[in-house]
């Protein structure tokens, strides 16, 4: 895993990427607090602390990045870049779909859109998992695990309020099962049904959590 580029210069890809990520986060934060005052009457205002921390983070990021060019160190998994990038896109798409449908629902007054957003969430997450799973040369980006895990959690997030725990639980577990390379769909279904039943009894039942149990159509 030691990255040794041609030419023999020592460098650590991991540190270079890590530094770049930190600088990126700091830049985003600075952009977001741009409208807040940087200093107030007694030295501190709402924008002071975030700016201080963001500058610190950027400086550290630069330091880590520079040291990455100077010393030898580990590289990054080849799957890291595509999977993280792909997942962030996936995330943003999911969020936009939900936001868009919600605002559409508000402007038209049709509450049904909420249900559609749940459905779209289900189709997107399920579809992506299926595609990732069925690709020739199975799981070539090493994305199947993360996709299935996050897909199942997002599916839960987007559907639980409308469909209820009793309906959401089984597909959620089935989706997450794709993350593992073992097991069968039958096992997933049986295990999912058992876990869902258990959680339905435990959380809204015994513990009295106010989580919706059945679909609210």
């Amino acid at each position: 895993m030691i990255a040794k580029p041609p030419g023999g210069r020592a460098r650590s890809i991991q540190d270079i990427v890590a530094g770049a990520v930190l600088i990126g986060i700091a830049a985003l934060a600075l952009y977001l607090v741009n409208h807040l005052p940087a200093a107030g009457r007694v030295g501190f205002a709402s924008g002071t602390a975030p700016r201080l921390f963001a500058y610190g983070l950027a400086a550290l990021g630069a330091w880590i990045m520079i040291s990455g060019f100077l010393k030898e160190g580990p590289g990054v998994d080849s799957s890291l870049a595509p999977s993280v990038a792909g997942l962030f896109v996936f995330f943003i798409v999911m969020w936009l779909v939900d936001q868009g449908l919600n605002s559409l629902a508000k402007s038209t007054g049709v509450v049904l859109f909420d249900k559609i957003s749940a459905l779209v969430g289900f189709i997107i997450s399920g579809g992506i998992v299926a595609v990732a799973n069925g690709f020739p040369g199975k799981d070539r980006f090493g994305m199947q695990g993360p996709l299935a895990i996050l897909g199942s959690v997002l599916f839960f997030a987007f559907t639980v309020r409308d469909l209820g725990l009793a309906v959401t639980g089984v597909p959620m577990i089935v989706i997450s099962y794709f993350a593992s390379r073992e097991g069968s769909i039958t096992e997933a279904l049986i295990f999912g049904a058992a876990m869902t039943a258990f959680c339905c009894v435990l959380f809204p039942g015994i513990l009295g959590q106010p989580i919706p149990l059945w679909p609210t159509f």
């Binding site: 959690v153 639980v160 959620m172 593992s180 295990f191 876990m195 959590q209």
Partner: peptide, 13 residues
């Protein structure tokens, strides 16, 4: 493979 889906569900709830 049975443990992590259960953890996920508990966490989500």
């Amino acid at each position: 493979r049975m443990l992590f889906p259960a953890i996920l569900l508990f966490c989500a709830i």
